[in-house]
Design a binder for these strands. Structure first.
Lengths: 163, 163
DNA sequence: CGGTAATCTTACGTTGACGTAAACCAGAGG
DNA sequence: CCTCTGGTTTACGTCAACGTAAGATTACCG
């Protein structure tokens, strides 16, 4: 077993990683990474001359974000795709503004992306609020049941002490 | 069109509802209700002599709870089944304590149910905390991007005013 | 330069959570 | 009694999100 193919100390580029390393670091399967690529959710930064996927650290961040949006927000991959797309547009804001000749259109696009991000915040806040209500209900039920159990327990203890 | 089969003003029993009424009230399909029954997640309180499902209001509450655990906690129906089972055990606490001769065993069961409920609370709290971190990150990113967009917009406005 | 581990493509399988269609009952109203 | 709406069982279909297996190819290591 030789070392992992995670380190590429070339002068020009960033650290690139093989699919196995990415899978290990993110906890998803290699199949899942290929599937994400298949549906256009995550395209590796580069490929080796032989055709092997080379992921950069941003790609790894994106995998983690995908999982976050899945587990925390309960989004499906299609919804996640649009969220990621909006975020990507915001992250390439400067270049888009410089390179584009059609600035009005670009502003509309970026406004839409910002609005999408805002809607995501709203969704997150709504979910937090709902979960807090859910938790409050749980707390109440827990306290009530525990009280009842303790009462019955005290009754039993008293009976045993008495007997 | 005669009236809905939701009202059964019989002296003895509670209000029972047909599967269509339950579906309408909870927003799930009839198929879903039958499926929940199929996997032992929700058995209707009663059946008509002809074999038709008769749900009580507790059943409706349970449907809503199932959806809550699905959408808020992201549980699958198997996980929900165990949660519901624990809650049911707690809800039948009194009868169980009375009817059971083996009180020690019953206490163990109830302790376990209480612990399950407590673990659910922990899970909810963890999810809330994670979502709050997620939201804080979103807020930060949103503010940052909005600032940048406004700066660029101001620059463009100044240029237009100047030219 | 050879061997072994990692990765590739292709393609079919699986699982959960239902949807949908067919053909047969149930029950209230007229 | 008939009809009409709502309900029943049975069974096959579907869709997302992967799992899994096969066989070929690439990459690194000594």
């Amino acid at each position: 077993m030789h070392a992992e193919g995670s380190d590429e100390t070339k002068e020009g580029g960033e650290q690139l990683h093989g699919i196995g390393a990415v899978a290990a670091q993110t906890g998803v399967s290699e199949r899942t990474l290929r599937y994400y690529e298949e549906i256009g959710l995550l395209t590796p930064r580069d490929h080796s001359p032989g055709g092997m996927r080379r992921y950069c650290s941003e790609d790894i961040d994106r995998v983690r974000r995908i999982r976050e949006l899945q587990t925390l927000m309960g989004f499906n991959l299609e919804e996640i795709r649009s969220v990621i797309a909006a975020e990507s547009r915001l992250n390439t804001l400067r270049e888009d503004f410089r390179s584009s000749s059609d600035s009005d259109h670009q502003r509309e696009v970026l406004d839409a992306a910002l609005q999408a991000l805002d809607e995501l915040r709203d969704a997150a806040r709504a979910k937090i609020a709902a979960l807090q209500g859910f938790l409050a209900d749980l707390d109440e039920r827990f306290a009530r049941h525990r009280r009842r159990l303790e009462e019955l327990q005290a009754a039993r203890d008293a009976k045993e002490e008495h007997g």
